[in-house]
């Protein structure tokens, strides 16, 4: 088999590999290198060591530290809310209730709409509630924070619900029934029987929501655009504004992006270890 198709790699692999080189490998490698350079375009880079990293974390660095913990807090809270709500909906909508397919359809719908559109849509709702109180969504950064949290909950819970439903459907009914016959309450059955069996789904959903929270950009841009004065900027928007909002700061922007990348890759590796350990146990 290997010998037979081995020499056909130009047909099978090359088209994707070329695009991959243009779309990822080259930009990634150059980005990594440029984070140690002073530059404004690709051709005027001068190696400067760790200067960019120092500038990125400095006081003048455009609030990077603020957006770092702002984003971490956001990602953790949104992961918790989305998963608790998504799993609850999955539990309710796997019961034999009337109209359950319609409910599933409705809860999943917001997922398909783009972040830019959703940000503008919710801006009208939030401002409609806040305006009579003499406030707007950008009066201070916490309105934007809670607003984004609510948008993400509304948008992503349906997606996680679908994953949890497919996880629940793999748990044999007999297990819950047996626990019930042994005298376990509904809560005990859920906590000790179904929840441990759901572990793979929980790992996937936690990973997805955590990285989505860290990477969030579009909704942030259209809801508050970082206002007031950059205080509601999440990491991705902070990096974008460092690149394109301040000339001469491209290097610091790239350094921030590398730090951002390390965080997200770190989360991914952690998730991978957890998944593998779970598989060994099972």
């Amino acid at each position: 088999m290997e010998r037979f198709i081995g020499k056909y790699w130009p047909v099978f692999v090359l088209p994707t590999l070329l695009a991959f080189a243009i779309g990822f490998l080259a930009p990634f490698g150059m980005g990594l290198y440029l984070s140690f350079c002073d530059f404004t375009t690709l051709s005027d880079a001068v190696f400067t060591g760790f200067d960019n990293y120092i500038r990125a974390f400095s006081d003048g660095g455009g609030g990077f530290l603020h957006s770092l913990w702002f984003t971490a807090l956001f990602a953790v809270l949104s992961t918790a809310t989305i998963n608790v709500f998504g799993l609850s909906m999955a539990l309710l909508l796997t019961r034999a209730i009337r109209g359950r397919d319609v409910f599933r359809t409705v809860l999943f719908l917001p997922n398909l709409i783009g972040g830019i559109v959703l940000g503008w849509l919710w801006q009208v709702i939030f401002n409609g509630i806040l305006n009579p109180l003499g406030l707007t969504i950008v009066t201070n950064e916490w309105y934007g924070f809670w607003g984004l949290l609510l948008i993400m909950l509304w948008q992503q819970a349906g997606y996680m619900m679908i994953i949890y439903i497919s996880g629940l459907s793999t748990i044999p009914e007999e297990l819950s029934e047996a626990a019930g016959i042994d005298g376990a309450s509904a809560w005990q059955t859920f906590w000790h029987v179904r929840l441990p069996m759901l572990r793979p789904s929980i790992t996937i959903c936690t990973f997805l929501t955590l990285t989505n929270g860290f990477k969030l950009f579009d909704q942030n841009l259209s809801l508050t655009n970082g206002m007031p004065s950059g205080r509601s900027e999440l990491l991705a928007l902070n990096i974008y504004n460092t690149f394109y909002g301040r000339s001469g700061w491209e290097g610091a922007g790239q350094a921030k992006a590398v730090v951002f990348c390390l965080i997200v890759v770190g989360i991914a590796l952690l998730q991978l270890r957890l998944t593998q350990r779970g598989e060994v146990e099972a």
Partner: peptide, 19 residues
Amino acid sequence: FILSMVVPFQMVMFTLSKI
């Protein structure tokens, strides 16, 4: 390929747009 799945777009956005 797996790495590229996880890397945030901001990491490559500047260089990618120039290329």
